[in-house]
Amino acid sequence: MKQTYNELSLTPSSEYSLFMDCLMSLSDEAIEEKDGTMILRSEGDLETIRFGMETFAQQLSLALDRSITLESTLSVCENEDWIAQYRNSVQPLYVENLYIHPSWVQDDPNKINVVIDPALAFGSGHHETTYGCLLLLQRYVQPNMTLLDVGCGSGILAIAASKLGAKVDLCDTDEQATLSASENFQRNHATFQTIWTGSVQKREREYDIVVANIIADVLIMLASDLQSAVNENGLLILSGILDKYIDKVEHKFTTMHLVEKYQKDEWFTLVLQRK
Rank of each mutant, 00 (worst) to 15 (best):
M1H: 13
E7D: 06
L8F: 08
L10M: 12
T11E: 07
P12T: 06
E15Y: 14
F19Q: 04
D21V: 05
C22E: 15
S25R: 11
D28Y: 03
E29K: 13
A30N: 12
I31M: 02
G36C: 01
T37N: 05
T37E: 12
R41Q: 15
R50E: 14
R50I: 00
F51T: 13
T55D: 15
F56T: 02
F56C: 04
Q58N: 08
Q59W: 01
Q59L: 12
Q59R: 11
L62T: 06
D65P: 00
R66C: 09
S67C: 07
I68Q: 01
S72R: 03
L74E: 08
E78W: 00
E78C: 04
E78L: 11
N79Y: 02
N79M: 11
D81K: 01
D81W: 02
A84T: 11
A84N: 10
Q85Y: 05
S89E: 01
V90Q: 12
Q91Y: 00
Q91V: 02
P92Q: 07
P92L: 08
V95T: 04
V95D: 01
E96F: 10
N97A: 13
Y99L: 08
Y99T: 07
H101G: 04
H101Q: 10
P102Y: 02
S103A: 13
V105K: 14
D107T: 05
V114H: 01
V115Q: 09
V115M: 09
I116F: 06
D117Q: 03
A119T: 11
G123M: 09
H126W: 02
H127L: 03
E128R: 01
L136I: 07
L136R: 06
L137R: 07
L137H: 05
Q142P: 00
Q142T: 11
N144Y: 03
N144T: 08
L147P: 02
C152K: 00
G153T: 03
G155A: 10
G155W: 02
G155K: 04
A158Q: 01
A160I: 03
A161C: 05
L164G: 07
K167Q: 13
K167R: 14
V168I: 09
D169R: 02
T173A: 10
A177F: 00
E183T: 10
E183K: 11
N184C: 12
N188V: 09
N188R: 11
N188L: 10
N188D: 11
Q193F: 04
W196C: 14
T197E: 14
T197G: 06
S199Y: 01
K202V: 04
K202H: 14
K202N: 15
K202T: 08
R203I: 12
E204I: 06
I209Q: 07
A212K: 08
A212G: 10
I215K: 08
L219R: 12
I220E: 12
S224V: 13
D225M: 13
L226C: 10
L226R: 09
Q227E: 14
S228G: 05
A229S: 15
V230C: 10
E232Q: 15
N233P: 03
G234L: 09
L236K: 11
I237G: 03
D243Q: 15
K244V: 12
E250V: 00
H251E: 14
K252L: 07
T255E: 15
L258P: 04
E260K: 14
E260A: 12
Y262F: 15
Q263A: 08
Q263V: 09
T269W: 00
L270N: 03
R274S: 13
K275V: 10
